[in-house]
Amino acid sequence: MVTAYVMVKAHTGNANKLRDDIAAIDGVENVHIVAGDFDLIAKVSVGSPAEVKEVAASEIQNIQGVEDTQTYVAMD
């Protein structure tokens, strides 16, 4: 099992919809709207590192309103 945190930078003010879209992705455990340089943080729990890439790079990045993501894989 691999856990990762995906920081999401938006370019839309409609954070509600972004949160719902990200939450609907398989493997996303939870997602919060946060204050700061990133606008949302998603916690991802999947079977392999390759799946982390799939969720972060393919699924989340393809959502309308997402400008950029940064992924941190948990090591403990």
């Binding site: 938006a10 839309t12 003010g13 954070a15 509600n16 709207i33 606008d39």
Partner: peptide, 8 residues
């Protein structure tokens, strides 16, 4: 765009 997020 953050104006809306922070207001809400």
């Amino acid at each position: 765009y953050r104006e809306e997020i922070y207001r809400k």
